[in-house]
């Protein structure tokens, strides 16, 4: 087995919201085609970290981002490349499903269309392909023209995952994607992540320890904007080094 390659390298990342130092000296090497779980209680900066990765931080006023995020040898924070191309390399799954205000078919086709694919036949094939990939095809194939908001939350979240895949990303960013879902839908999403992992580098934010244990290959534990400990999942869960990690693991597991 070859040694794990690094997909994303974060160097000395610091983020300020006004005077609030939200992320402090973050250094992570996110391994390729593995599931990296970012763990920590709410408010510790997980969402902010994720938003730095595809520069959604650009959309906020009063925010300052310093440091480097290197993907494919290029620092995306200071890159001259078009930001839309950078974002297309990453699919985003947010805490709540935000289906686009259109029908199920077009939710999937949207990403293809804005990448310049317009042929009806091609679109039909790809829509089916992506819906099958997230096990939604059988459930929706007869109602592709219905608004996406008519689906259940769990279905919507799977649809959003598929929508993110249509722009052909290498990376999937997911921000507590199951926190609003019922257990069955959560499991479906987790399973999808495990299936997709051989093709995609996944960065998953969660504050449920059990979920992290089930699917993580690599774990980053954060507390109040700092990384307390990070490492391969086995090591992190079975042999934590820092006192804060130990008490965190104890606290949630008993």
């Amino acid at each position: 087995m070859k040694a794990t390659e690094t997909e994303i390298k974060i160097n000395n990342l610091n983020v300020f919201h006004g005077n609030h130092h939200t992320l402090k000296n973050i250094n992570i090497e996110i391994p390729k085609q593995k599931i990296t779980v970012i763990l920590g209680s709410s408010g510790c900066g997980k969402t902010t970290l994720l938003k730095c990765l595809n520069r959604l931080t650009d959309l906020y006023s009063n925010i300052k981002v310093n440091g480097e995020i290197i993907i494919n040898g290029e620092d995306i924070l200071h890159s001259k490349e078009d930001i839309t191309n950078i974002r297309r390399k990453m699919g985003l799954l947010s805490q709540m499903p935000y289906p686009l205000p259109m029908n199920i078919y077009n939710n999937i086709a949207y990403g293809l269309k804005i990448s310049g694919r317009k042929k009806k036949k091609y679109l039909n094939k790809r829509v089916e392909y992506y819906l099958k990939q997230i096990n939604l095809w059988e459930e929706v194939k007869d109602r592709l023209k219905d608004p996406a908001s008519s689906l259940s939350l769990g279905q919507q979240q799977r649809l959003c995952l598929a929508r993110g895949l249509t722009v052909d990303p290498n990376i999937i960013l997911a921000d507590e994607p199951t926190s609003a879902l019922d257990p069955v839908s959560s499991n479906a999403i987790e399973e999808l992540f495990l299936n997709l992992k051989q093709h995609y580098t996944t960065v998953l934010v969660t504050h449920t320890l059990r979920q992290a244990k089930r699917i993580a290959d690599y774990v980053v534990f954060m507390y109040l904007g700092e990384i307390i400990e990070q490492g391969p999942a086995d090591e992190f869960f079975n042999n934590p080094k820092m006192e804060k990690t130990k008490s965190y693991l104890r606290g949630t597991s008993n």
Partner: peptide, 15 residues
């Protein structure tokens, strides 16, 4: 309009 929707559109690489 929820910010999440706008972010989703941008994250798909929309201009």
């Amino acid at each position: 309009v929820p910010r999440g929707l706008i972010e989703v559109a941008f994250s798909l690489g929309s201009t």
